[in-house]
Design a protein around this nucleic acid. Structure first.
Lengths: 144, 144
DNA sequence: TGAATGTCAATGCATATGCATGTATATATT
DNA sequence: AATATATACATGCATATGCATTGACATTCA
């Protein structure tokens, strides 16, 4: 197998490090404000987007790149907090539809200002628009 | 506080996603080969670099961006596996020096081929050198 | 010197995660 | 239809992590 160049290794290292720093900036800001973690935000946002129809857990799994059992347990906690409801699925007895509640919409709205400030701090303030554009292009290439 | 632009948010999202995918590619490859996780590699590599003098846990903490208690417990496991030794520190009774063992050097050597292949798969094969260079530049800016 | 404060590292307890498996339902095969 | 296989989701158990605190030593400063 082809060995990575030093440049490739440097890219890998800076990717990991940059993400770690940015992520912990954002996550810890949420925590400081007594708000739920990022995953919860992502889930709630997806659920808000699709509205009353809701989504099935396995759809979230694909969207959010989380393991099945991870989703299952996050949903437990979110349901317990009243941020979403699991309703039986009519056409598939195995599944549920996940519906965001009013309380879920509320917390989503509360999270965004904190979340967005942190994104600006961790990313926006450190790159000019041209760099950001290039970053999106390059990082997207790592995604597919 | 300044709100992030859509471009900034896109950058944030692709950063998180790209890292998640690359990281899990690498980490799961190590796991498949019954090798220790990435953190262990980083620690062992640092220890190898400094040689017989060893390093103190708090130095690793800064280097690797891990919490103090995280380090402490990783070191427990690594010591248990015989990959490193904690020796009392002569000039500071609170601390230890961490010394890599032969077994540690061995596992490090075993890990690299798997690790490097995975880096090549996750990063090297997806970017041309010019892009990699730009990526390092931009990501580095997120680090300081 | 010795009392107060700071630093290094470990740990008890609560919570989260990974892995393997279980339960229920759906789909495919004969 | 009966059986085998696949999919959706949950969960028991072991392990890992986060947080707060402790214990041991170092440093500062009155």
């Amino acid at each position: 197998m082809k060995k990575p160049t030093d440049l490739t290794v440097d890219t890998w290292i800076s990717l990991i490090k940059a993400q770690k720093i940015a992520f912990s900036t954002v996550e810890s800001s949420l925590k400081r404000h007594d708000l739920p973690p990022l995953n919860w935000y992502d889930i709630l946002l997806e659920l808000k987007r699709v509205g009353a129809d809701g989504l099935r857990p396995f759809q979230l799994e694909k969207e959010l790149l989380l393991p099945q059992y991870g989703i299952s347990r996050i949903l437990d906690r979110m349901e317990e907090k009243g941020y979403l409801a699991r309703k039986a699925c009519e056409n598939d007895g195995r599944g549920h539809r996940l519906i965001i509640t009013d309380k879920g919409l509320e917390i989503l709205a509360k999270m965004w200002p904190v979340y967005s400030d942190a994104i600006e701090t961790a990313v926006g303030s450190k790159l000019n628009p041209k760099q950001a554009k290039v970053a999106v292009e390059i990082l997207s290439q790592l995604i597919d």
